[in-house]
Design a binder for these strands. Structure first.
Lengths: 245, 245
DNA sequence: ACTAACCCTTGATCTACCTCAAGAGCTAGA
DNA sequence: TCTAGCTCTTGAGGTAGATCAAGGGTTAGT
């Protein structure tokens, strides 16, 4: 009981059991800042497929992803679409310092968000050097990821692109997995159409290349979404890794 | 005269005439910080084509671009190359917070750099919230640019890609140019091979598409590098602009 | 269990861009 | 002015991936 009293003294009750309190922006606020912050946040739940406040919507605030996967996409007038990023738990949704950003955020799975008004986050960032630091590190990482993807989009063949996205998901799930860097198991967070939009290919080409990898024993696919990679190094070779990575 | 005395009191002599003092990181340091900072910086000059400390080189420090254009590229093992970014005057060279970054920086024109040791910039960033803020804004902008480029690489046709890069340069030079958003004149900072590496195309395709735009009167090209765009809107339409941009 | 609505796969054909090849500007140095 | 070395252009033909088309799996609701 004492322990509960102690924590509720310093941590807002709605944050105590939050799964991303230690990894998202909240980890970089002082207890006082967190208490003030939490008075203006509100959790919301969303179904897969829902559009989460297109980032052009200036009235909307920011949101932290508490659970689920979100895709960021851009459109050309004629409907061609490019996936430009994925957001996972603890990532921040919304473009800081800019009210116009031609990006759409859409739920790929069921989503739990922690929403906050623009002004609240912006003043927290203005006050907290630690928070700014965290956001700077995150955005530099996102920039690295985006540039790595530019190599994939600009210079890799279709077989290499598909291997690259599988490798991306495999590496993301490696730690969750049991042991060595030999075998990895995971569920694809994206359907073929989204993978195609990520890779700059068509659905058919993605499907054909997955079939090829399956025939060659590089991956084992069950029920379209569940994937086993018996040998990560083999997949990595198929992805035509960049020279210094 | 009074004004000159006042500035030399507070600004290090080597910085007084620096062309990027008002726009680069130095604009966000206090006079005292700038004085301390300047004691550890050194200018260096480089020829076009020179490789400027591959960013994997952990011993190297950071550098600010004072003059010229630099291309950031990534390589695949077999030599395929992708241009992932361009750096202009006042941009910072070097990946903050990470010693390994598989990116190569190469001078595209004659270059003037202001070099500094890693530790000096890092402690300045740690101390200065204004500097961190500046770097955060810049990296968010670079992220936006990279994602815009992902759309070009993943979903645009060759004619649209070439129009897109011309539009990019045209918009960058618009303010330098005289007046309205009608006619713009500029020199291409990149040769065809670099444009191809930026666009994920071959040299021949870039050349053919430039010829096509020339034949159609969208651009006027003299001596391979000098370009006139009589009607920006027309070029923009050729670039297949993204929906909300 | 059955049905509807998605997903995904596979095949046949087409085409945008690549590859290979030749030659024509430019630029710079002797 | 001439030459050497880039850089750029243009043409002919080949190919990776797109498009068009059909059918098979998977999942969820009744």
């Amino acid at each position: 009981m004492l322990e509960v009293i102690a924590t509720t003294d310093t941590i807002p009750h709605q944050c105590v059991s939050c799964s991303v309190r230690q990894t998202g922006i909240c980890a970089h606020l002082t207890p006082e800042q967190l208490i003030a912050f939490a008075q203006h946040t509100r959790h919301s739940h969303h179904q897969a497929g829902e559009t989460l406040a297109s980032e052009t919507d200036t009235s909307a605030g920011y949101a932290m992803v508490v659970e689920g996967v979100i895709k960021l996409t851009r459109l050309l007038q004629d409907g061609r679409q490019q996936l430009v990023g994925l957001q996972f738990a603890s990532d921040l949704l919304g473009r800081l310092y800019s009210s116009e950003n031609p990006t759409t955020a859409e739920a790929v799975s069921e989503i739990e968000l922690c929403r906050m008004p623009k002004s609240i986050l912006e003043s927290a960032v203005a006050e907290s050097s630690a928070l700014k630091d965290f956001l700077l590190r995150r955005s530099l990482q996102e920039l690295d990821d985006a540039r790595e993807w530019m190599v994939t989009l600009g210079r890799k063949t279709a077989p290499e692109r598909v291997a690259s996205i599988l490798l991306l998901f495999a590496l993301r799930n490696r730690r969750a997995d049991a042991g060595k860097d030999s075998a990895v198991t995971f569920d694809l967070p994206l359907i073929r159409a989204d993978m195609a939009d990520f890779l700059g290919l068509t659905i058919e080409t993605v499907s054909r290349q997955i079939s090829k990898l399956r025939e060659d024993g590089v991956i084992i696919v069950t029920s379209h979404r569940h994937v086993v990679v018996p040998d990560l190094e083999r997949l990595r070779r198929r992805a035509g890794q960049s020279e210094l990575a």
